[in-house]
Design a protein around this nucleic acid. Structure first.
Lengths: 335, 335
DNA sequence: CCTCCGATTGAACGCGCGTGCAATCTATGT
DNA sequence: ACATAGATTGCACGCGCGTTCAATCGGAGG
């Protein structure tokens, strides 16, 4: 029923080893024979069993891909590009979607049992111990959008601080003085960086934050927190949000209160998800270079994988490479 | 470096077979010994190699998951629930994201080479030949949101016709007479069904469609086509869209023209993606039961897999099971 | 026509693990 | 104390394929 290399060997009148070589790039085999074997294989519908192949050579072609809940637009966007880049690099993504409360460790160890060639972690938090364990299992990790503390793990991440500097610059230049902040999920790497970036940008200008509230990166939380800000006695003239989703919620809140954006209040987000450009929003935001991020992530990962394969622990481990990508201000109507 | 069952066997003072059995549910092994082996394994950090395990037993625990471009909200939503259900069933999804123009066959055969235990196809079109090939490779397929013609492939799909009946019913009851349609990507299963459903619903009432245009399920196309409809001499008083994304675009178009929704024109979508509920849209739409769909898909797939494992081709193949899930009308502001 | 070297080839082993089978052990029953 | 059924255990084989190594082939040079 299942066609194996033996079947092809018999049908082609060669040894099984030749079948294997025919499918292995750069293996010693006469060109004529390779063509013949491949032809026979095609008529039989044979394809090398990747599982068996993964057992001998230590390459499975699998990459563990950890992302957050994909129903959120930013996560979906990131997954789309990461997944595409992984396939472009001729790997297959083993998808692990983590919900906010989920434990990552167990699941990632599960993935390790599949002998993944590497892992891309764009959600959840990985303990340095787990990272080390992955590495010692032969699966280099690349963090996306987060950097492990005091670490030797590759990472690629947008420059959140710069992003907020750009935003504050734009808002203050257009005369806004009473800035408020709606933060995303606390203790999140991105949220900490963005919040710090905001504070630094304000400090540099000798400004104070009018008010700060805490959301959870969802549209609903943005709406709720913005309602609170805009009905307080001391109303802001600009609201910066930890991400676009909350900013969309904030715009809705402003409208519900009969305010006009940006006349009565400016609203800005972060990420530049597709919905930010939709007509009713026209959100001014910071473009998170997702495509470039994905590309870099795969560059780092493949480099690390090849390094691992080439040298078996004799070469000292390359030190971690942290790539910071510059975000970009996208000015639309909302601010 | 890599810990194998042999290492554990030696450390625990038992044979390798016992280690294997300790990790196999229901294998003959004394409870005391199992506990001991597991303990030793834990201290060594041992985990059975799933790749090797997949080579002998014909179960890899992998499921090929084919979805469309995830940056689109509906696809993301579906992916989220499917992925979760797959993990709940203790499988791992091998993610294949297909772009509108992509060739599915090659990629799916690639996945087959990983000896996936099954496949869930929620995008792209699969030729019956390919479906047959999957099945004969021991990977049952379940189609989601589409049904293969004249077929013996399991599928779960929302009742698109009923959805449009509900929508037309609601619109005509509220006095709309001049209905227009913006279709999604042509030749798509869902688009064909929805369009036919619309026509039938109109026929039943002796109504005619005022105008029909063709989009591609994107927000932009909805906007463009709605602009065309609303600036034509013969303006509709209701626009039905093939999916929510286009409906959001249509709402934006109406507003751009200074029209009030739903006073001047009612707008309805299909799917009930999260954004449909967002404040500036408040889209009336048809709820596509995505969660139930995912559950059903996994129920069908696991049943089929178990069936395959149990009987090796002696039992006649079960005939295809096609599950139709009822959609539900969600009335919001837009219609 | 013979020799010698490089290009090909085939046989065999091992990757890590599940499992049938026969051997061993345990706890009954007498 | 002895036999016996049932519970455990170890051995060995095979899953499908990559790869080393020695054997074979081909042809260029003499």
């Amino acid at each position: 029923m299942r066609v194996t290399a033996d079947d092809v060997a018999e049908a082609a009148g060669v040894s099984r080893a030749m079948v294997s070589r025919a499918f292995t790039e750069g293996a010693p085999i006469a060109a004529r024979k390779r063509a013949h074997v491949l032809a026979v294989a095609a008529t039989l519908g044979y394809r090398p069993n990747r599982i068996a192949r993964g057992l001998t050579g230590s390459q499975t072609g699998l990459i563990a891909l950890v992302v957050g809940a994909v129903s959120r637009p930013y996560e979906a966007w990131l997954l789309e590009t990461l997944s595409r880049e992984i396939r472009t690099a001729r790997y297959w993504p083993l998808l692990l979607q983590v919900q906010p409360g989920d434990e990552l460790n167990n699941a990632l160890e599960d993935a390790l049992a599949y002998q993944v060639d590497g892992a891309i972690v764009a959600a959840g938090s990985v303990s340095p111990a787990l990272a080390e364990r992955c590495r010692s299992s032969g699966a280099p990790i690349v963090m996306v959008g987060r950097v492990l503390p005091g670490d030797d793990t590759d990472a690629v991440c947008c420059d959140n601080r710069l992003g907020l500097e750009l935003l504050v610059d734009h808002l203050t230049r257009s005369g806004r003085k009473r800035l408020a902040w709606i933060g995303g999920t606390p203790d999140t790497f991105s949220n900490i960086e963005r919040q710090n970036g905001l504070m630094e940008a304000l400090d540099r200008r000798g400004l104070n934050l009018l008010a700060a509230r805490t959301g959870d990166y969802s549209v609903d939380s943005g709406l709720a927190q913005a309602l609170a800000l805009l009905t307080a006695p001391d109303k802001p003239d600009a609201i910066l949000c930890g991400n676009d989703a909350m900013a969309l919620g904030a715009i809705a809140a402003a409208r519900r209160l009969g305010l006009t954006v940006p006349r009565d209040v400016a609203i800005a987000g972060f990420d530049d998800i597709p919905a930010a450009a939709w007509e009713p929003y026209q959100l001014t935001t910071i473009r998170n270079p997702v495509l470039e991020t994905s590309r870099e992530a795969l560059r780092l990962l493949t480099k690390r994988i090849q390094n691992d394969v080439a040298s078996s622990s004799d070469v000292p481990a390359r030190t971690a490479e942290i790539v910071r990508l510059a975000p970009e201000l996208v000015i639309r109507q909302s601010a």
